[in-house]
């Protein structure tokens, strides 16, 4: 509407106000440029402020804390990566399958509403997933799954037990995190699967391939880089996920791969959320220092994701 509002004699607008227009252009362009630069400044400020606030931890008297910073952060770092890894392990195959279902198997009409449903789930607040995990999932798992795992697979270090009766274990956390990151990975995978060139698919089918063979030959290779970058984004979100872990996990200061006991390594983010409100002085600085570690870990994961995505898509375009 506004487009057609421009009067036919457009030059009457520009000509008399040429100097002000140039000024206007300069101001408008300047504001845009400033906003862009402010992005860089903000990111630098995030790193800088965190660093300044974290610094007193390293300069503190050795007697202030019982342990050095590295031995404080090591179990937390392990817990963070371990939980995110398990969540990705559970979520990735399911997410790819669901994305395939929505993009290639489900009836077109249903597929749209499924897609909408999945997008909506990506926006459900993590605190809600946390409540559900502790109130619904944990009792189910601790009643019917963990005892079975301990009895039948107890020889594996992962299920060594003793099985938790409250269900506040690393495995419950991993399942909840998997449910949370599933919509993200699914959404991105679905997008790339849908972009598979129709000619590739039809060529494969014309050669007599079954539907699954067509998907394996045409869809999956085309979407591989998209799936990987989606997985990395999901991993990034799982690494930084705070509230669900803080609500569900029963933490201890240890490093273990046992996923069904009450003694679990905490994650960096959950540790901050649990301790921050009651902390003061150098304890706050130490928590911020762990936050800085988390920042770098997610930074690396996201950089890898972007590199994979860029490499993959440029190849697909060409």
């Amino acid at each position: 509407m506004t487009i057609t509002d421009t009067p036919p004699g457009g030059d009457t607008i520009a000509a008399p106000t040429e100097t002000t227009s140039k000024l206007g252009d300069r101001i408008f362009g300047g504001i845009s440029l400033g906003a862009g630069i402010l992005i860089l400044v903000t990111l630098a400020a995030v790193a800088l402020f965190l660093f300044v606030e974290a610094w007193p931890t390293f300069g503190a008297e050795p007697s202030t804390f019982n342990e050095s910073f590295s031995s404080y952060v090591a179990p937390l770092l392990f817990g963070t990566i371990w939980a995110a890894f398990l969540a990705l392990l559970l979520a990735l195959p399911l997410a790819v399958a669901v994305a395939l279902f929505v993009s290639h198997y489900a009836p077109k009409r249903l597929a749209v509403s499924f897609g909408y449903f999945i997008d909506l789930l990506a926006a459900i607040p993590s605190v809600v997933f946390g409540l559900w995990g502790i109130a619904v999932l944990a009792p189910i798992l601790s009643r019917s799954v963990y005892p079975w795992l301990e009895d039948n697979l107890g020889f594996l270090p992962f299920f060594a037990g003793p099985a938790s009766t409250s269900g506040r274990t690393m495995m419950t956390v991993a399942v909840v995190l998997a449910v949370m990151i599933l919509p993200i990975i699914t959404a991105i995978s679905r997008e790339v699967f849908l972009q598979t060139p129709r000619l590739h698919e039809e060529a494969s089918l014309a050669l007599g391939a079954t539907k699954w063979e067509m998907i394996r030959q045409a869809v999956l290779p085309y979407g591989r880089s998209g799936v990987i970058s989606g997985a990395m984004l999901g991993l990034g979100r799982a690494l930084g996920e705070t509230m669900a872990v803080a609500i569900i996990l029963s933490p201890a200061n240890i490093i273990t791969v046992n996923v069904i006991s009450n003694q679990n390594p905490n994650t960096i983010a959950a540790n901050i959320a649990l301790k921050f409100p009651e902390s003061a002085g150098l304890n706050v600085n130490r928590l911020i220092a762990t936050g800085l570690v988390l920042f770098f870990v997610t930074f690396i994961v996201n950089a890898l994701a972007r590199r994979i995505a860029n490499a993959g898509f440029s190849g697909a375009d060409g």
Binding site: I39, L40, T42, L43, A45, V46, F49, L50, V52, E53, L233, G236, L239, G240, E241, T242, A269, I272, A273, L287, I288, G291, L294, F295, T298, F299, V301, N302, A303, A305, R306
Partner: peptide, 20 residues
């Protein structure tokens, strides 16, 4: 940098605001 910002964990953003 916008991509990097998208990946900032929410708790880290909170710590940044607190620190500032």
């Amino acid at each position: 940098m916008v991509d990097v910002m998208t990946g900032i964990p929410s708790i880290v953003a909170g710590l940044f605001a607190y620190a500032m």
